[in-house]
Structure formats: C-alpha cells, structure tokens
Amino acid sequence: MRCRACNVALNNYEATRKTVEGEFIDLCNTCFHTIRAEVNCANNADTDIVIEDNCK
C-alpha cells in the first residue's frame, strides 16, 4: 500500500488509519499532517469507541 499523495510505502499504522466515519485515508504521516486539522481519525484498537469533534 502506498501513499495516495506522494507514493511512498505506508507503514502498518498509516495503511490502517481511518476516519471516524470508517473510511481509509491512505496517506503517509507527512502528507496526512497537511490535512490533520480537518480530519478526525478513529483509533484502530477500539472499534466500539466513538470520537466526536467538540468544535462542530
């Protein structure tokens, strides 16, 4: 699996990073950093945990 923006190989955490809506992001940490403020991610370990943005 490679980053959708810069095409570097993704590590395990990057490849399994999902939004709170369950959509895979598929960006490396460097590219993800540029959109991090706009995206809230789920924690991979706890599928029963819900994460909400208090600012919305």
Binding site: Y13, R17, N29, F32, R36, A37, N40, C41, I49, V50, I51, E52, D53, N54, C55
Partner: peptide, 12 residues
Amino acid sequence: LDWAGDKSLSVI
C-alpha cells in the same frame, strides 16, 4: 500522529 493534543474531541 492523529490528534497531537491540539483538537477538542470527545471519546465515547
């Protein structure tokens, strides 16, 4: 990597 302590979130 994802939160980095600069967002206001609720974990339910």
